[in-house]
């Protein structure tokens, strides 16, 4: 298989397979989760579950002061790499063009040097996050294979994307192919791992906020 054939496979059949696994898996997983259902609350409500749920979906992104002080690194690094991932994935011109080409949706991009710098910061932060996971007694204790796997498949697209952008080591064709392949790996593993939190966290936050909101508490 030549490099061009590899790239063609990666952006053709492989992407198609990855898309199917990704979309099918996410939809199935969310339905499977939500369909477990929950009992109606018979206690007299003090507040609105719906309002509470929606509120917590948003407000849980901002920690309270005490929590921030106790978990500063986790929170700051979490913010940086999540925003970094958002910027590199969604505000990089070629990525937007890809979405435009496939779905006909387009939005303004950030200048490439800005995205480039963001990618560097995000890569460094993700490495720091990994070190933290390996060193912090609680995180090290909690973490298993899947936690490290999830880290790796998140890190790889960023790394291969950075290398492809700067064309280091291999031919550009190969670098782009590897970058797309790493994204496909992420997509295929997504529904089977805790990467699902990308979507399920909003459901989780909704339930948390709804349970509290029903009792008149802002959670």
């Amino acid at each position: 298989m030549t490099e061009t054939e590899f790239l063609l496979w990666v952006r053709g059949p492989a992407l198609q397979i990855a898309t199917i696994v990704f979309v099918l898996g996410i939809v199935a997983r969310i339905l499977q989760m939500v369909m477990l259902g929950r009992k109606a609350n018979l206690a007299e409500a003090r507040g609105s579950a719906l309002a509470g749920g929606l509120r917590t979906m948003v407000t849980r992104s901002v920690p309270d002061k005490g929590t921030f002080q106790r978990s500063t690194f986790t929170i700051v690094s979490g913010y940086i790499f999540h925003i970094g991932l958002f910027v590199t994935i969604f505000l990089f011109a070629p990525h937007i063009l890809l979405v435009d080409e496939v779905f006909g949706l387009s939005w303004p991009a950030l200048p490439t040097p800005v995205v480039d710098a963001t990618a560097v910061v995000t890569i460094i932060t993700l490495l720091a996050v990994l070190i933290h996971r390996l060193k912090d007694p609680v995180m090290r204790f909690l973490s298993g294979f899947s936690d490290y796997l999830v880290w790796l498949v998140t890190f790889l697209p960023l790394l291969t994307g950075y290398i492809a952008f700067h064309r280091i080591g291999l031919s550009p064709t190969m670098l782009i192919a590897l970058h797309i392949l790493s994204v496909e790996l992420l997509m295929v593993l997504f529904p089977f791992t805790k990467l699902m939190h990308t979507f399920s966290l909003f459901i989780a936050r909704y339930y948390n906020g709804a349970i509290a909101g029903y009792k008149g508490v802002h959670s």
């Binding site: 989760m33 939500v34 929950r38 699902m196 939190h197 339930y207």
Partner: peptide, 19 residues
């Protein structure tokens, strides 16, 4: 139930609950 499934699905082992 659904909340429990959503909760377990979402845990990233960040360890903040310990603190």
């Amino acid at each position: 139930d659904a909340p429990v499934a959503a909760f377990f699905n979402s845990c990233m082992h960040c360890g903040m609950c310990a603190d």
